[in-house]
Simulated scan of single mutants.
Amino acid sequence: MTENQNESLLPLKSLHLPEMPSWFPLAWGWWASLAAVLIAVLLVWLFIRWRVKRMAPKKTALRMLANTKEPSSAIELLRQAALCYYPREDMAALTGKPWYVFLDRQIGKTLFERNQERWQQALYSREPIEDAQELVEHCVYWVENALPPQKGGVRRG
C-alpha cells in the first residue's frame, strides 16, 4: 500500500513564496506623516523660542528687583522693563501722576497712585523713607502681573 500511495502523488514542484515586501520606498502616506510630524516639532520649537525671548525682560527684571532695596532703583527697573513691552512713544511721555496711573491701570489696582507722595519722596529726597521695602514689593508685583501685556498693549481709561 505504501508503494501505491507514492505512485498516486503527482510530481509537483515545491511552493515558491514571494519575497517579503520591503519598507523602502515608503508609500506617500508615510512621507506625509513624517512631514506633518517634522512641521509640528518645528512649530513647537519656534513657539518655545518665541516665548523664552518674550519672557526674558520680565525674568531679568524680577531677578534684578530681588536684589534691589531702594525704591528709586526699583521704579527705574520697572520703567526699563515696561519699555521692553510697551511702545517707547507712549512710555516717554509718562511722568509723575500719569506714570502712576498707567502702572495702576495695567494691574487693576491702585498701588502706585495712592502712594504717589511716598514715591516722590523716595525718588527726590535724600532722606530714607519708611516702608521702602513695601514700594519695592509693589514694583515686583507689577512686573509679575502686568508683563508681558495682554493683547491691546497700553490700557487706557
Rank of each mutant, 00 (worst) to 15 (best):
M1T: 01
T2G: 13
E3M: 05
N4P: 00
N4M: 05
Q5V: 02
S8F: 02
L10H: 01
P11A: 09
P11Q: 05
L12S: 03
L12F: 07
K13L: 07
K13I: 00
K13W: 00
L15H: 11
H16A: 12
E19R: 15
M20F: 10
P21H: 05
P21A: 06
W23G: 06
P25K: 10
P25G: 05
W30K: 06
W31C: 06
A32I: 09
S33Q: 02
A36Q: 01
I39F: 07
A40N: 01
A40F: 12
V44P: 00
V44L: 15
W45N: 10
I48S: 12
I48F: 10
W50G: 03
W50D: 11
R51P: 00
M55H: 08
M55F: 09
A56G: 01
P57G: 02
P57E: 01
K58E: 08
T60N: 07
T60S: 10
T60D: 06
A61D: 01
L62M: 13
R63D: 12
L65N: 04
T68W: 12
K69D: 12
K69S: 15
P71A: 12
S73D: 14
S73Q: 15
A74I: 01
L77G: 11
L78Q: 13
Q80E: 13
A81S: 14
A82N: 10
L83W: 01
L83T: 00
Y85H: 07
R88C: 01
M91T: 13
M91D: 06
A93I: 11
W99I: 00
Y100V: 01
V101S: 09
V101E: 15
F102D: 14
L103Q: 13
L103K: 06
R105W: 03
Q106W: 07
I107K: 04
I107P: 04
K109Y: 11
K109L: 12
T110I: 06
F112A: 05
F112C: 02
F112Q: 05
F112W: 07
Q116G: 13
Q116A: 15
Q120P: 01
Q120M: 14
A122R: 12
S125D: 14
E127G: 00
E127H: 00
E130R: 09
E130P: 00
D131S: 11
A132W: 07
A132S: 15
Q133F: 08
H138S: 01
H138M: 07
Y141G: 00
W142M: 09
V143C: 13
V143H: 13
E144N: 14
N145V: 02
L147F: 08
L147H: 05
P148A: 07
P149C: 11
K151T: 12
G152E: 06
G153S: 02
V154D: 01
V154R: 07
R155C: 03
R155H: 08
R156K: 13
G157T: 05
G157E: 09
